[in-house]
Design a binder for these strands. Structure first.
Length: 587
RNA sequence: GCCGGCGUAGCUCAGUGGUAGAGCAGCUGAUUUGUAAUCAGCUGGUCGGGGGUUCAAGUCCCUCCGCCGGCUCCA
């Protein structure tokens, strides 16, 4: 029952609580607001904090801002910096503050948020002043390197019912070099954007006539997915899971029992009526797995049951939040449910963490951080069970050796959970695996097992997803590898490049030979220079190119060029051996 | 959903009221090539859909669809 956040921050490298940098950025936000107020009339201010990778400031003003306005604002900011205006802190009474903020309705509301007894401070530079806790740099002259990046709408306090403000996002660093590095990283992220690469490498598409957020997997994307799924299945069997397949639709009654119709209806596709019953497309797999659990009387001797499914679900996600493969409406979860006794839960959690860590390392994600979310105020289920589950999660985390943070009260209403975040090749963090206790569904469906004592007991139920959604994971993987998939995942592992027409037959024979060995191979039939063929193969990010000329045929060898440009001349048998080893090792 | 931007050939894009363009890709032909682009010719578009303004609309207006940026967070 977990929902996944879609985006990594662009720039994990520069994150982390660097107070100096935060202060600098916050001051830059003030200078930007000051510049905006100098240029435009009737500007209402909201807030301007620093963020993980920069800062923003929210304005309500008649003028519609566009990126074309940035140069003028930046020029005005540069002037303010040149003026080297000191940031002055002024503490005032609430009444004085109200007077100073006359006409600034958002600020006045923000002022009301400040608890009685807490100091009310303003920061002033030149004629511009702003309700602000601080701290700030000494003077505007301290600002060195900043850039405005984007403008977008943003609800006041993030609420849809509130007015929409205009938010200018920017970033700032202590020097131009770091700013340059950051901007370069944004460029790098754009280059490896999975939507761009998905088109260039012919991996997947979406179609207006089908509907937003519904993915079409092209042959190359489908091949990669199939390899991922094969690996996933194999490892699940190896780790003591059984696989399930369940229907895509279910009657209203089922979703009534599960609670989805009461609490999740707006996230579901509208029902279709068949034989006077409403059928809903599934947004989750859990109720089906539960039905299978309930299809028999379960003994404590049967537990734990670990059941996994690549279950395709559909959810109505708001149109505005859809994003490539990362946030879609139809997706396949690598969903699993573990049913176990209280005595078993800790070992089960440990195993899931170990399994999950293994999977991430296989895909080349080395840096993993865990987040433990505990009981929120509004929660269902026996507090003693919450306690046991939370303790189990935490001790499993300790045993795993993973670094972790605790989000007190951050759990779902139905159980505590562990989320794993991984860092990709350019340092961005993504929330991936979830291990989620559920104290809700077992009650709703009245799940039980017969214990040693001959009595009925409620099993523990844990939802667990490693990838979350195959679509989203695939999108992240494309960006992580920048489209250059390792040999074990590459849809086309080898491309044979005949030097001229004279080698066409030999090349075709080589393709047949390699294909027999389960190698994913194609050949370039076109006439043209070898340089062009190499270029095409490079752009398609094929791991190995085999150049075949008269020399190689004569000597019984192939000229192997890999994606990095490294070359060697070896026998075909040696090449096959080498490739198979790489695939075996998932290198 | 909301605010803003955008939608022109398979792809990347130019074209701001007066006869729809380029490069790449594709096709055909020539070339037979030694490690990131051989040359030439050709094909390809109801300019996202619908409606309107105008003598005339890719261009202006309305509307729908889709895409992009964003919508908790130290006042």
């Amino acid at each position: 029952m977990t929902r996944y956040r879609c985006k990594g921050t662009v720039c994990g490298l520069f994150m982390k609580n660097d107070l100096q940098l935060e202060t600098l950025r916050h001051s830059t936000a003030h200078v930007m607001a000051a510049a905006v107020c100098r240029i435009y009339d009737n500007v209402l201010l909201d807030i301007g904090p620093s963020t993980d990778d920069g800062f923003y400031y929210d304005f309500d003003m008649p003028q519609r801002l566009t990126p074309d306005d940035f140069p003028a604002i930046e020029a005005e900011m540069a002037k303010i910096v040149a003026e080297d205006l000191p940031f002055e802190r002024i503490e005032v009474s609430r009444d004085e503050a109200t007077k100073m903020l006359a006409g600034q309705k958002y600020k006045i509301e923000r002022l009301a948020d400040i608890p009685e007894g807490e100091a009310i401070s303003f920061y002033k530079c030149g004629t511009f002043f702003d309700l602000c806790r601080g701290p700030h740099v000494e003077s505007t002259g301290k600002l060195r390197a900043f850039k405005l990046l984007s403008v977008a709408g943003s609800y006041y306090r993030g609420k849809e019912t509130n007015p929409m403000l205009q938010r200018i996002n920017g970033t700032a660093f202590t020097n131009d070099k770091q700013l340059g590095l950051y901007l370069k990283q944004i460029e790098e992220a754009k280059l490896r954007d999975h939507r761009k690469l998905g088109k260039e490498l012919d991996l997947f598409s979406m179609h207006e006539e089908v509907g937003p957020g519904l993915i079409h997997w092209h042959p190359k994307g489908a091949r990669i997915r199939s390899l991922i799924e094969d690996f996933w299945r194999q490892e699940h069997f190896r780790n003591g899971y059984e696989l399930l397949y369940t229907p895509h639709v279910g009657k209203a009654n089922l979703w009534q029992t599960s609670g989805h119709l009461d609490f999740y209806k707006e996230g579901m596709y509208a029902p279709m009526e068949i034989d006077k019953s409403d059928y809903y497309v599934k947004p989750m797999n859990c109720p089906f797995h539960i039905n299978i659990y309930k299809s028999d009387i379960r003994s404590y001797r049967d537990l734990p049951l670990r059941w996994a499914e690549l279950g395709t679900v559909y959810r109505y996600e708001k149109a505005g939040v859809l994003h490539g493969l990362l946030r879609v409406r139809g997706f396949t979860q690598d969903d699993a449910h573990i049913f176990c006794t209280p005595e078993q839960i800790e070992d089960e959690i440990k195993e899931v963490l170990r399994f999950s860590t293994f999977i991430w390392k296989t895909f080349g994600f080395e840096s993993i951080t865990a987040y433990l979310s505990t009981r929120p105020e509004k929660a269902v289920g026996d507090p003693a069970r919450w306690e046991q589950a939370t303790v189990s999660l935490e001790s499993a985390l300790k045993a795993s050796g993973l670094p972790y943070e605790v989000d007190e009260g951050g759990g779902a209403f139905y159980g505590p959970k562990i989320d794993l975040k991984i860092k990709d090749a350019i340092g961005r963090e993504w929330q991936m695996s979830t291990i989620q206790f559920d104290f809700n569904l077992p009650d709703r469906f009245d799940l039980s097992y017969i214990g040693e004592d001959g009595e009925k007991h409620r099993p523990y139920m844990v939802h667990r997803a490693l990838f979350g959604s195959i679509e989203r994971f695939f999108g992240i993987l494309v960006e992580h590898y920048s489209g250059a998939f390792p040999a074990w995942l590459a849809p086309e592992q080898v491309r044979v490049l005949p030097l001229s027409e004279d080698q066409l037959d030999a090349a075709a024979d080589m393709v047949v030979e390699l294909r027999k060995q389960d190698i994913r191979v194609t050949m370039d039939h076109k006439s043209g220079k070898i340089g062009a063929k190499i270029r095409n193969a490079q752009m398609d990010k094929v791991p190995y190119m085999l150049v075949l000329g008269a020399k190689e045929i004569e000597a019984g060898t192939v000229a192997v060029r890999d994606r990095t440009g490294a070359q060697e001349v070896i026998t075909l048998a040696d090449f096959v051996e080498k490739l198979k080893t790489a695939v075996q090792d998932k290198a």
